[in-house]
Every structure is written in structure tokens, then in C-alpha cells.
Design a protein around this nucleic acid. Structure first.
Lengths: 132, 132
DNA sequence: CTGCATCCTACACGATACTG
DNA sequence: CAGTATCGTGTAGGATGCAG
């Protein structure tokens, strides 16, 4: 698929908005989980697949590739008979770790509060369709 | 046990995916920008629209609604002749601020490094056997 | 074991126009 | 000023199957 001109657009947008830039890299449903799981040391493909609950093989591969492309992960292939591949976080990605765990910790602390806020909002927002 | 890092991944899995939860809330192209922009005090709709470069009115509204629903923003309407609406971050959202600015700061520090990593990766990947 | 190819659906997002 | 309504696009992500 040739998307050369698309890259230009992306580059322009990234220049304009550093905030968007963060999200484009760390966004995705599984990026943070992978980065945290790999933060402590080299992790194998299957190891990630098992530890990250709910991820499909396809998304694991795609996310891994994108993180590798952005220089957040290093992929090491051992040409053994059963293939062995290890993913290691780069120093750059390691700098992200604190913010990432901060995010996760925040989510854990406020999970119930958020659920309540949602329920309250939805209840208050529920309009009766038949108000004549 | 010599494989202590396994415990971390297991912990991640046991959490019923708080990671996904964070992203579901903070994800979206504009959430972080809005939360940071509103962190210093009440912000009006148009004020946000002007300060966040590139956001459409529709996405601003949608993101605002979602953040409000999750209890991260409080929406205050002043029934004046020209409508006035202010959005204020909740204490819960304020706790996120450090992690958020951490992310943005990280992005700014490593922007060029990431761009280089991307270019290098793409160059190494575009080894086309035959050129059309 | 570690992927890639293909098909498909959901939804995030943008553009535009209209409104109290 | 602060939205809502509608339409169209791209793409993230899931399911499944094949391969080195």
C-alpha cells in the first residue's frame, strides 16, 4: 500500500500538535500494557501474549511493530530451531515508564469513582422518549 | 525464583486490564490536550476551541461530553443571554495532570529521536526486491 | 514459536450546515 | 456562544487461517 503523501500530512500534523504526537505513539489499546510488561527485561512474544489478557496475536504483532518502529522497543531474533524473539524496551521507553505506571495507578485508584460518575451521568441523561 | 519479572506480567493480567481502562478514558485524539488546557482553571468552550489547534467543534463537544461523563470535567452553564459554559477539572482529573504533562514532556524531549527511529526503520524495511 | 494475510465491523474523526 | 445533526472516510481492532 502506497501512502507516501499521507506521511507528509502526518508529519505536518505532528509538527503542529505535540500532544497528538504522544497519543499517536502511546495510543492503541495495548501499547501501554506492552511497554510496562517489557519494562523489567526482555520479554518473548508468547510471554506477552499470555500476560496481556485479551490481546489477539494480530494486535500483539502490530503493536510490537509500531513500538519497534518508533524506537521504543528493540526486537532481537535468535535463529534457533524453535524461533525465539525477545523484545526489550529502549532507554527512551524506560523514561516513559513512570508516567505510564502513573496512569495505570490513577486508573486503579479511581476506577470505581469513574464507574459511578458514568452511571450517574447516564441516569441523569436518560430522557424519556414519550413525554407528550 | 529467578524469573521475578513474571510476577509483574501476572499482576497486569490479574487486574482485569486497568491498562485498557485508562486508555478508554484518556484515549482519543484530544482528551489530554483538553485536560491540560483546563487544568489551571475554568475554561470556556470557545477558549478551548481556540487554544487547541486543529480541533473541530464536533470533536471538542464529543470529547468534552465523554470527559464529563467519566467525572473528569464539570460542566457549568450560566443562563446568560449569550450562553456561557465553563469546564472545570475535577480533583480526580487533577491527579492525572502530572502523568499527562509527563507524557507530553517525554514526547517533546524525544520527538526527533522518534522521527529518526522511524526513518531508520522504514529505510531498513523498504528493502524492495524489485523496484517498479 | 512467531509471525503474516485476509476479511469484516465498529467507531473515531473531519467537513459542513443548522440552531437556541 | 455553544452547541446539534448528518454524512462520509480512514483505520483500529477482532476472527480466522496459513507459513517459515
Amino acid at each position: 500500500m502506497s501512502r507516501g503523501h499521507i506521511r507528509v500530512t502526518e508529519a505536518l500534523r505532528d509538527e503542529a500538535c505535540p500532544v497528538t504526537e504522544v497519543l499517536d505513539r502511546v495510543a492503541g489499546k495495548w501499547s501501554i500494557g506492552i511497554l510496562i510488561a517489557a519494562a523489567h527485561g526482555p520479554v518473548r512474544f508468547t510471554e506477552l501474549e499470555r500476560s496481556i489478557n485479551g490481546i489477539s496475536r494480530r494486535m500483539l504483532t502490530l503493536t510490537l511493530r509500531r513500538l519497534e518502529r518508533d524506537g521504543l522497543l528493540v526486537r532481537t531474533v535468535y535463529p534457533t530451531v524453535p524461533p525465539k524473539v525477545e523484545y526489550t524496551v529502549t532507554p527512551m521507553a524506560r523514561e516513559l515508564h513512570d508516567s505510564l505506571t502513573g496512569l495505570v495507578g490513577w486508573a486503579e485508584r479511581h476506577r470505581s469513582a469513574i464507574a459511578e460518575a458514568r452511571a450517574a451521568y447516564d441516569t441523569a441523561t436518560e430522557q424519556r422518549p414519550d413525554i407528550d
